[in-house]
Design a protein around this nucleic acid. Sequence first.
DNA 1: CCGCCGATCTTT
DNA 2: AAGATCGGCGGG
Length: 209
Amino acid sequence: MTGLPLSPEFFAGDAREVARALIGKLLVRSDGRVARLVEVEAYMGLDDPASHAFRGPTPRTKIMFGPPGLLYVYFSYGVHWCANVVCGPDGTASAVLLRAAQPLEGVDLMRKARWHGQRDLRERDLCRGPGRLCEAFGITGADNGLDLTASGGLLGLADDGAGSGGPVVATLRVGLTRGVSSPWRFIVKGSPWVSAGPRVAAGDVLAGS
DNA sequence: CCGCCGATCTTT
DNA sequence: AAGATCGGCGGG
């Protein structure tokens, strides 16, 4: 069972609140791949120097200025794809980066998609990091603009009611050179499925309940 | 587990 | 020229 699809309204609010609420939700692909989100980051568009949309709409970022619930995919370091969900009202440009998840179903497919001759590709590493998560789910630039709230689509986000599985904390975002001091990364505290970066650091704040 | 380095392409 | 990353390697 893959849960109830999230609606456009779910993504229409403040991206930081959406990010917090996405922890514990399911990323679902129509071929049976399912994973539970344990790590996401909010990017606040025009107000956030770390956001790709900080300098306004461009060919790359125009999707972020559109309606909430759409997929924004970008190419990172010439090597990896990374996936975001567009948030906030149509016309604004915030988004949530999907950074890590716990594989639940279709693990064999994820393993196949991720296999590049690694000596030891462990289940723990299938979706641990934004590039890995995209590879495990076969997400590429061809999927940019997909509506994640459309039922029966290739990809979606859903709620199975299970929750986060542990306390959620807000930490600093990973890998940035600008906007470094905004604590808009949300993780399940102590989860082995969370990516690199401090799992828990002094000063981290419990986020929500 | 940690740190360093190279890969390789888009955007500025 | 820098960047919302990852895998392999060497070291502790």
